[in-house]
Each structure stands twice: as structure tokens, then as C-alpha cells.
Design a protein around this nucleic acid. Sequence first.
DNA 1: CTCTAATTGATAATAATTATCATTTGCAAT
DNA 2: ATTGCAAATGATAATTATTATCAATTAGAG
Lengths: 124, 124
Amino acid sequence: MYWNKPGVLHMTAEDIYYEVKKINPKIGIATVYRTLELLARLDIVHKNSFDEGKYRYEFCEDDGHFHHHFLCSDCGAIIEVEEDFLNLLEGELERRGFKIIDHNLQLYGLCPDCNQKGNNPGER
Amino acid sequence: MYWNKPGVLHMTAEDIYYEVKKINPKIGIATVYRTLELLARLDIVHKNSFDEGKYRYEFCEDDGHFHHHFLCSDCGAIIEVEEDFLNLLEGELERRGFKIIDHNLQLYGLCPDCNQKGNNPGER
DNA sequence: CTCTAATTGATAATAATTATCATTTGCAAT
DNA sequence: ATTGCAAATGATAATTATTATCAATTAGAG
């Protein structure tokens, strides 16, 4: 598959490659991957896995990098969900017409052992 | 890499392959993938992506398939987090010695448009 | 037993990503 | 400007995880 719904936020490396090609036709895919990796290391973009066997990238929010997404099983839409909820999230979303089938929360950081050892990685 | 920390819960297909090989040396990796796919479709195992470019599998809880994980940036430990929290999750975990650097919640289901259309996929 | 259909294992194919390397580019010092 | 050199780039090979293919094996139903 060469292209995604146009205008969709969460693009794959390939999506970005074809988009950049419009402006700079001589760009190589390696540069796209290299640049994305760099931007991710600088916390400018965030690399998400939505269990498709590939990654999707988006710009980080200014305030921090906490992202929630709603993935429609039917049309494949990726809808952003604001941080605020979290607690009443599900009820709130269902009230708004969503049907939640599954969810998956991943927390990144240091476990008590490593935290105590005083390790301090800049990134997750 | 051929093998993971022994005793760790969340195994990759490769991990499982080498484990099963001990009992049945003639097993092929294709059967492992096929079986995992089947078990996942039956909601017996759950397929997680922890942004490593591969998947890890675990048995589903009896009550439903809602999983939270804490991934240590330092030692790579994958620690299970009980559902209950969710709201006070972060404060609670930090009180327990964790350092949370990032999190990522993914919700699966139907968006309002598709939900209204009456679609009803068995799986996410 | 025999026949047939499902399952299996070996392996090829695919897809996403990463590594390699020769070439090009940008730019500091002359 | 011109040279020299380090960094960035693009083409492409390599790698990795996963999926597809297909012939051979196995397991039951009759």
C-alpha cells in the first residue's frame, strides 16, 4: 500500500516518504527513517505502534508527550483523545458514541530497582 | 537474539518457538505463529506491541482483556499493572518507587460513525 | 485398513526497518 | 574562489519479524 487517507495525522515512514518526494523528488527513504529517528530522539515527534507491524509518527504536544488514541476497528480512523479524561474516559467516550472493545496502556520509565540505582535516561 | 530472560512472562514468537522445541524438537516456527494467531483470535492470548519491532504474547485474564504494562527503560523488565488504578495510577506507581517517563494508551473499538451503522466485529 | 481433509514443517516471499558505502554537499580555512 | 574534509545523502544490500505456499505427514470417519 502506497498511500494512506490524505490528511490523516498519523503517518507511516512510507507515507512521509511519498509526501516529501513531492517537494524533493530525489529524497531517499533512508533519510526519512534517519530524520524520524532523530526527531523522535529529540522528542519532537512521537513514534506509535498501533499493532499493524509498522510505526506511525506524529508531532509531540508542547506540554509533554502523553498520547491517547482511539482506533476504529471498522474504518481504521485514528482519533486523538485528550489527556484530561483518563479516569472517566471510557464512560465519557461511550456517551459520545464510541464503542470500546479493548484498550492497552503502556507506561514507560524506571522500575523501582533501577530508579533507586539513580539511573536517569533522557528518553524512555 | 535467540532467547530472552528466562521466566519472563511476555514472550516473543521466537521465545515460544525455542521453548516448545525443548518438548517437541520437530516443531516449525510457522506452527508457532499459526497457533498464536489462533489463540489471539479466540481471546486466549493477547498480542502486545512494546515498540520493539516485534510482538509479545501473554495469556488473557479471565475477566476480560485489559492489560497495562510498565516497561523499564533500564533493565527492560515488563511489569504488569492491575486494572483498578487507572486514575490514580501514576501517583500510586510513583509512591511505589516507579519513575514514569511516558505513557501511551490505545483504545480499540468503533468510532461513533461506525458504531451507529450497527457494525459489530467480534474482535477489535 | 483406506480415503480424504486438516495440520504440519520447510522454506520462499513479503514488508518494514536498519546498515553499509560510495558520492555529494556544505562550509571553514586558506 | 579554491581546497580539504567532515557530515549528510541516496542507492541498495542486509536484517528481522511475519506471512504465504506447498508438498508431506497425520488423524479420523467410514
